[in-house]
């Protein structure tokens, strides 16, 4: 059977979640791989959640926040950047290809960008194959 990556996306309700809704309004097309978990701010996402998702077999994880200067809570996204960039640098040592994790800034006006990010991420995950814990090759 064809491999369809399973992507879990943590989406800030003000930007990326709204951007995903806008992609719907604009009828942008992208593969049905991503499922969003709505959070008030990307600063609510613990790096542990990303690890938990990968450990439970998600093929890819996305954390979507606001562009710098656009945070609804002033600077939550700066904290996201620090936390997530640190996590990304550690993923390889933890046995996961860092490309399985993306931290993206997608605003509520960027419906098209949301669709493009998911399309691109899906393509990359298909190349990487399934999560190593779900029978994929350990390419970490």
């Amino acid at each position: 059977m064809e491999f369809v990556p399973n992507i879990i996306g943590f989406a800030c309700q003000w930007c990326t979640y709204a951007g995903a809704d806008l992609a719907g309004n604009l009828r942008c097309k992208y593969p049905p791989t991503v499922k969003l978990i709505k959070v008030p701010c990307s600063g609510r996402v613990k790096p542990e959640y990303v690890m938990q998702a990968l450990a439970q077999g998600a093929d890819g994880v996305l954390v979507g926040g606001c562009h710098f200067g656009d945070c609804h809570y002033k600077d939550g996204n700066h904290k996201t950047k620090n936390r997530m960039d640190m996590l990304k640098s550690m993923l390889g040592d933890l046995g996961f290809d860092p490309r399985r994790f993306r931290r993206e800034w997608i605003s509520g006006a960027e419906g098209k960008k949301f669709a493009e990010v998911i399309t691109d991420f899906t393509k990359e995950l298909i190349e990487l194959g399934p999560n190593p814990l779900k029978g994929g090759e350990n390419n970490g």
């Binding site: 992609a23 097309k29 499922k35 969003l36 669709a115």
Partner: peptide, 24 residues
């Protein structure tokens, strides 16, 4: 959210959209 983030964006893949709706 199975409209804005599912049926509207996956109209070309009904089986995929249904599978995603179940997960959502």
């Amino acid at each position: 959210n199975i409209r804005d983030q599912d049926s509207w964006v996956h109209a070309n893949d009904k089986a995929g959209a249904t599978a995603k709706a179940k997960q959502i």
